[in-house]
Design a protein around this nucleic acid. Sequence first.
DNA 1: TAGAATTTATACCGGCAAGTATAATCGCAG
DNA 2: CTGCGATTATACTTGCCGGTATAAATTCTA
Lengths: 214, 214
Amino acid sequence: MTRPTSPWQVTGDRERQRELKRDAVIRAAARAFRERGYHNTSLDDIAAVLHVTKPTLYYYVSNKEQMLFECFREGLGRVASACGEARGTKTSGRARLLAVVRGYVEAITSDFGWCMVRAEDQDLSPAMSARIKELKSEIDQEIRGLVRLGIADGSIGRCDPKMAAFALAGALNWIAHWYRDNASLSANEIAERFVELFVNGLAPRPSGLSGKSP
Amino acid sequence: MTRPTSPWQVTGDRERQRELKRDAVIRAAARAFRERGYHNTSLDDIAAVLHVTKPTLYYYVSNKEQMLFECFREGLGRVASACGEARGTKTSGRARLLAVVRGYVEAITSDFGWCMVRAEDQDLSPAMSARIKELKSEIDQEIRGLVRLGIADGSIGRCDPKMAAFALAGALNWIAHWYRDNASLSANEIAERFVELFVNGLAPRPSGLSGKSP
DNA sequence: TAGAATTTATACCGGCAAGTATAATCGCAG
DNA sequence: CTGCGATTATACTTGCCGGTATAAATTCTA
């Protein structure tokens, strides 16, 4: 019911262009939000970065709130797909958890890291807010599941999966507060150290059997 | 140079009243911010909770920004004093760290927990923002110091103190995101589990010598 | 090259909320 | 009860910013 008959699919190039521009808008928004915060960023600011004017933004996005939503989604989506990949592999619970951690750090240090964790879902409409909560909850459940799996297969010691998931996610999310692009550590290095820390804990280990079980 | 001569100190009751009311304003602000976020909270909202009107608030506080600042300070101050107490005791680095964790959880689950970690210092004037950063940095340094101390005295295993402090603080700060007053776990229980987790790590331990060294 | 669709800009509206005169009250000392 | 400081309320101004009506420019198709 759009476009009568023959040239149903446009040049294809036009659509691609549009998509790219839309992505650029979302990206610019994400960066601006990270730097100044959601409420301290005006649409004019975002437009200026792109050398465009405000109405142009509205051509690609329906309103400011939706920009935030898309940023949320982009970031969370990356973590979710890391979870998905981990589920594919058939290694131990601990190994899978570590894979997720790597993907998580990657996502959190991206442009969308800020939105992912520091943006307030209060700033979203109830419907969008609910959707975000849902996505976050899925990730949380995924992590808890991996911890439980690890406990079951013996690759992780006994602990409260819920608390472990909270602590791990908290430590990871917090990276968004202190990470800077020019940081001394790369995303991967950070992931390695976090893994080391969470696996071995702070207590001194009787050296030798540090942590390479299943 | 205020109040000529004799009754320098007023009734004392008057001053006390004022102080109490001011505290009530800050508290109300903290609660409102936590529920709706800083930018979604109007001064009229805060005033309404106190059954007062907006100008009354200005009698106790110079502007909205200062309210946020005071909330920040209150929360951070509590953590700082936990650090101070820990420094008093002469126990192992690990024991002191655990004491700090308890105080930290207490602070983060208070009314000021939200402001402490989720409020954006972007919303503060450069001067105030700088002051907050300073306070946060002091706490961070304190924690790193305890980790180093623990490593030195053998109560903590070898690790990167900076990363350990980041991970620990992150996990703790994140509590502000999920903690609800009616939660099943009390602040103290949360602290215990976190300590257990961070001390022992996720890897299974050869049972027996779990973690009660110096 | 006509003209339709797509893309962008100019110029405006409206509302909300921070902050502020100004004046009315309240409570206590004399 | 009287007058002065401390406290609170009424009613307003002001600026910002999200959102939009409208028209111009650009690009593709035929």
